[in-house]
Design a protein around this nucleic acid. Structure first.
Lengths: 193, 193
DNA sequence: CGATTTTTTGAATCATATCAACGTACGTGG
DNA sequence: CCACGTACGTTGATATGATTCAAAAAATCG
């Protein structure tokens, strides 16, 4: 049930069984069905979600109604609108399930308590966010310096499990492209091989 | 000398004078002149730099020799190649001074020691990275969903002090544009007003 | 002041978006 | 299990926007 969560934590900070026992009561298992919202624009993002199973997307909707996907998250990752989470402001993002999911929800109160009571929990979140930061920087770099073909190849190589599980038009959205452009880029990649 | 650093820390975590005294010995003041490197591609990023005064840029150089700027950092911010810092791998980025700078360098050993000895230091860095994360996500969103004009206006509004202190072609690089394109976008903005 | 860097402008070229149409795959209800 | 409807992906023609290269104008520095 919580195995994957503690497995991930143990990769970065070694927990004693006592520490695990301190953490467990703060965790909340939640199942969401495909297409269901975990967070809706306008609501406060009151929890961080750890993905035990399934795949979600976080996206913003612009004036013209286009969905701009900021991130995907699958097993072993966290997802949340951190801005709303920390400030308490209504979120500008939506998060919904691309597949049926099992999530561990950790609400802000729980998280704050954990940070104070279990230093390794704070360390774990720090290292996780640092990792996310590094990935985001790489993404920005590749957006400003690489061709669409290169970017798609990079993405497929780095996140093969996501490419396989997500419709292509969502990957186009994540890359900041129209579905047509991504389709043509893929064609060029295939024929050039 | 270290006032700004502790001021920034106190905004997020209230330090006792005792805690400040524990931290101070780990800090190292360093001055760098305009155009000087703080980190060069191929070297290990052994420290995180806090900017007391001045302005720096972090960038990657691609095969064709173009400089792609990932971030600027001015007073009150941190800068480092976190990937290299954590893994020990040679950095793929350069960091250099856009203006003469005064920096507080905190090397990895010092930082690791501080994390263990002063929990508030770890909390501070966690909150800082979280903040950087939120900003990076906003940047990605605006890159995939907004026009060049909008993005430039956003940037000028959010970082007016940077726009004023950095040559325009560097902002173009940061935005993933050629200098010509940014120049024309600015012209459109001015004439439309 | 002269030298260098930065910004602007113009014209040609290339890449991506848009709009419309068609083909394909998928899941659902009958 | 099949048929139908909806999602998704591909293709083509055209329009829009960004890049490239060359040159001139403007700003900055020593």
């Amino acid at each position: 049930m919580y195995e994957l969560f503690f497995e991930e934590m143990n990769k970065l900070v070694q927990l004693t069984t006592q520490e695990q026992e301190m953490i467990t009561p703060y965790l909340n298992l939640k199942k969401v069905r495909k297409k269901q919202y975990v967070l809706q624009e306008g609501d406060w993002c009151a929890s961080v979600a750890f993905i035990v199973k399934g795949l979600l997307r976080q996206y913003a909707v612009d004036e013209s109604g286009n969905e701009n996907i900021i991130q995907f998250a699958a097993e072993g990752w966290f997802i949340a609108d951190l801005y709303s989470y920390f400030t308490g402001d209504p979120s500008t993002y939506n998060i919904d399930a691309v597949e049926d999911c099992e999530l561990i929800m950790i609400d802000k109160k729980a998280s704050d308590a954990l940070m104070d009571q279990v230093p390794k929990y704070e360390r774990f979140t720090r290292l996780q966010i640092t990792r996310a930061n590094i990935a985001l920087q790489k993404r920005v770099i590749s957006m400003i310096s690489s061709s669409v073909e290169e970017r798609y190849l990079d993405f497929s190589k780095r996140y093969p499990h996501i490419v396989q599980r997500v419709p292509q038009h969502m990957i186009a959205s994540y890359m900041g492209l129209t579905p047509e452009t991504l389709s043509r880029a893929r064609k060029r990649i295939i024929t050039k091989k």
